[in-house]
Design a protein around this nucleic acid. Structure first.
Length: 737
DNA sequence: GCTATCAGGCTACCT
DNA sequence: ACAGGTAGCCTGATAGCG
């Protein structure tokens, strides 16, 4: 590595420091190269602050402007001082230092990286999912040599204390820099809480005297160690969309070619096999799967850390906002631009107007379903990197794009070309206005930056296809991420200092137009064959003999050029499926060429559904796609002859308890029952399993099979039958009952 | 007093 | 705190009906 393992912000009352972890477990506290600061246009006075003057272009109008720079001793003092007249006052301090002193973190190198890949298995005593009261039954791990080891609980041993102690002994020998897990929200807290329950000090896992702790911006902190959750990378990976049935370790590792020697265990088997080699082997296989998926994503993270000059812990936790601060921050510095307010402040007509509930700041993508039902074969055409490419191709950049005025809404995107600029009339149904946007022909810096990243990306992508070199793959992914989230992504953000709303509004509007053009080509070639349309892609069907990708591409390019008065470098890719079943917008099922069924949308795959519904959906979808009869399935399900577990639905507590607007919200009621009856503290992120009984809703743990509201569940089955266009059963059934 | 309908609040999902 | 767009479930208010 060219950068440190991790950097943590530390402050005294007098100034800011960084605790930097680098080389072999060395850590030292260094002064931050820059002090916390923000800007203002007015000559403000603050306590504990030093003021200086500088001229720069203001982001709002690109005019040379006098700015006052206010320097503080600590972040805390800055936070206390900032107000509506201050700018660039919410940039994370490590990122601020990285933008201002790009080489700073390169001074501290973590040359060696010791990894600990690990996975734990737990007993499940409530039949649903293990809790912190359940024993750990097996721990498997590996280090840099990738040899997998395990410790598992003896059959006749009731406590997991010795097991955990043995593992921690190994841990202390390994002294890992990076802990690699799949779902850190499970493995890390489970290990820590089981330590606590067994009176084992968790300090043993730390590189200092400080105990690992929960909370803060990275959820779980262990001093001197970086936790890398491979699942987070898998969830972010858009290239898995439509390729895997879910983002669990099994599916994802199989997708990347894990060679399965043993069938995975069911939760029931995991309980039955406690104290056997079978469970330990299963556990070890999961570590092998983990390492395989790790190999796919880790190179990108290491690459990004080195490329951006940020500590590894920041690269692991990187979000769109911070990435944009770095990529655009470097460019703003070159251009001598200072942000004089967030999008919300610079464009109050867009962000601060009175909005009804559900009304958005501006109009987004084109989404539609034109036909429903089973379709065979099924094709998809989609634009690659649609929004960033539009930004690059249409030269959308803060220094070229100006919102001239608002006009009355008319549902028509119009273009007028002038000598050195284009004028676009951009309709927006959320604002109920048409925005007149002027875009200079002189190349803009942000558009160029996107273009540079997209161009490089396609070179590396081609090269990777040819050579299979993983460095090319990492480079390709790095440039895509930079273009997508790092530059385009934040343009519509209300609070990001570098967002530029006219770019976002124009980009989505052009996106809708180019999508309409693609739809027109398909319709003109093949007729009324369009099913689902979403943002940059369209599902359709056509006679295999008439399907001609190049003909579509050629016609599309021609129509794009006519419409926009210039060559537009937007390209489309194609995907092919054996069949599809389309229900509503964003809700459909696909059958891949290798007979995998892929579910899309809330109706089809919501994790909150009960096993009963999920299983019925799966079987009906299978029957539809393989053209098999559905009657036997229906007959089986309407008996409702299933264990209680199959009726349990679940809901996640998305907010803190006090944030709920009224007491009748189901998840809040369940959380309070769980607190009262089971002593479970209501916490954001908790998942509650519940069933519908004749008296209302009840926690699964407290419900009995005979209390089940049969009518409710029969209705649930009917709803699913209607989704698949099957005749509802309930009426006849009720008569029969 | 019952049922149907709708808006509001929430979660989950898609691009 | 990257965004907007769609769908479904539940509750409570209200309208319509007998």
């Amino acid at each position: 590595m060219k950068v440190p393992l991790r950097v943590d912000e530390k402050a005294s009352s007098q100034r800011e420091y960084f605790e930097v972890w680098y080389d072999d477990d060395k850590h030292k506290t260094v002064k931050s190269p820059v002090y916390p600061y923000f800007y203002s246009k007015k000559p403000l006075e603050f306590r504990n602050s030093v003021r200086s003057e500088t001229t720069a272009k203001a982001l709002s109008d690109l005019q040379e402007t006098l700015f006052y720079r206010h320097k503080f001793r600590t972040r805390k003092e800055l936070v206390q001082a900032r107000n509506d007249d201050t700018f660039e006052d919410n940039i994370p301090f490590v990122i601020r230092n990285r933008i201002d002193v790009p080489d700073f973190f390169y001074q501290f190198k973590q040359t060696e990286l010791r990894f600990l890949f690990f996975d734990i298995e737990q007993e499940t005593t409530n039949g649903i999912f293990p809790t912190y009261d359940d024993r750990i039954t097996s721990i498997a791990w590996a280090t840099n040599d990738r040899k997998v080891k395990s410790i598992y609980l003896n059959k006749d041993r009731l406590s997991d204390k010795t097991l955990i102690e043995l593992f921690i002994e190994q841990y202390q020998k390994i002294k890992p820099h990076i802990i690699v897990v799949y779902n850190k929200d499970y493995d890390i807290p489970t290990l820590l809480r089981r330590c606590e329950k067994n009176n084992i000090s968790t300090v043993k896992l730390s590189k200092t005297k400080k105990k690992p702790y929960f909370g803060g911006k990275e959820d779980y902190h262990i001093d001197g160690t970086v936790i890398y959750d491979v699942a987070q990378s898998a969830f972010k990976d858009q290239s898995l969309n439509g390729e895997v049935e879910n983002r669990g370790l099994k599916e994802v590792s199989n997708h990347f070619g894990f060679k399965e020697k043993r069938a995975p265990l069911t939760p029931k088997q995991m309980n039955e096999y406690i104290g056997t080699k079978t469970l330990a082997r299963y556990n070890m296989d999961d570590v092998r799967r983990l390492m395989l998926v790790f190999n796919v994503y880790w190179p990108n993270i290491e690459f990004n850390a080195n490329d951006l000059g940020i500590p590894l812990n920041f690269a692991v936790e990187m979000n769109t906002s911070n990435l944009a601060l770095i990529t655009l921050g470097d460019e703003f510095k070159k251009q001598n631009i200072i942000s004089d307010g967030s999008n919300a402040q610079r464009y109050p007509e867009i962000f601060q107007r009175k909005k009804k509930t559900g009304e958005k700041n501006y109009e987004g993508a084109l989404v539609d379903i034109e036909n429903t039902g089973t379709v065979r074969p099924c094709k998809k055409a989609d634009y690659s990197s649609l929004y960033p490419t539009i930004m690059a191709e249409f030269n959308l950049s803060p220094d070229t794009t100006t919102l001239i005025t608002y006009e009355k809404y008319r549902n028509k995107f119009e273009i007028a070309e002038h000598d050195d600029y284009f004028l676009y009339a951009v309709p927006d149904k959320e604002m109920k206005k048409t925005l007149i946007i002027k875009v200079l022909k002189k190349r803009g810096f942000a558009a160029n930056l996107v273009k540079k990243n997209l161009d490089e990306r396609s070179i590396y992508k081609q090269r990777y296809k040819k050579t299979g070199n993983l460095r090319d793959k990492a480079l390709s992914s790095n440039r895509k991420v930079k273009a997508n989230g790092g530059i385009y992504g934040i343009q519509g953000s209300a609070h990001h200092p570098f967002g530029f709303a006219p770019i976002a509004v124009t980009t989505t509007a052009i996106g809708r137009e180019v999508m309409k053009i693609l739809l027109s080509v398909i319709r003109d070639f093949y007729g009324n064959v369009i099913y689902d349309v979403d943002t940059d892609g369209v599902y359709f069907t056509c006679n295999p003999k008439e399907f001609n990708k190049n003909r579509i591409r050629t016609e599309l390019a021609k129509r794009l050029e006519e419409r926009f008065h210039k060559k537009v470098n937007l390209s489309i890719d194609f995907d092919e499926y054996k069949a599809g079943y389309f229900y509503k917008a964003k809700n459909y099922v696909l059958l891949t060429l290798d007979d995998k069924i892929i579910f899309h949308g809330n109706t089809m795959k919501s994790s909150s559904k009960n096993i009963l519904s999920r299983e019925l959906i799966f079987q009906l979808a299978k029957a539809k796609l393989f053209d098999k009869p559905t009657k036997p399935i229906v007959d089986q399900f309407i008996s409702l002859d299933f264990p209680l577990k199959h009726f349990a639905m679940n809901v996640r507590m998305g907010k803190h308890l006090h944030q709920y607007k009224n007491d009748s919200i189901l998840v809040k009621r369940l959380a309070l029952i769980a607190k009262e009856e089971l002593g479970l503290t209501p916490e954001q992120g908790n998942i509650y399993h519940y069933v519908k009984t004749n008296d209302g809703y009840q926690l699964y743990q407290l419900a009995k099979k005979e209390d089940i509201d049969r009518k409710y569940y029969l209705q649930q089955i009917d709803t699913i039958l209607e989704v698949f266009n099957e005749t509802p059963q309930q009426q006849s059934l009720e008569e029969w009952l």
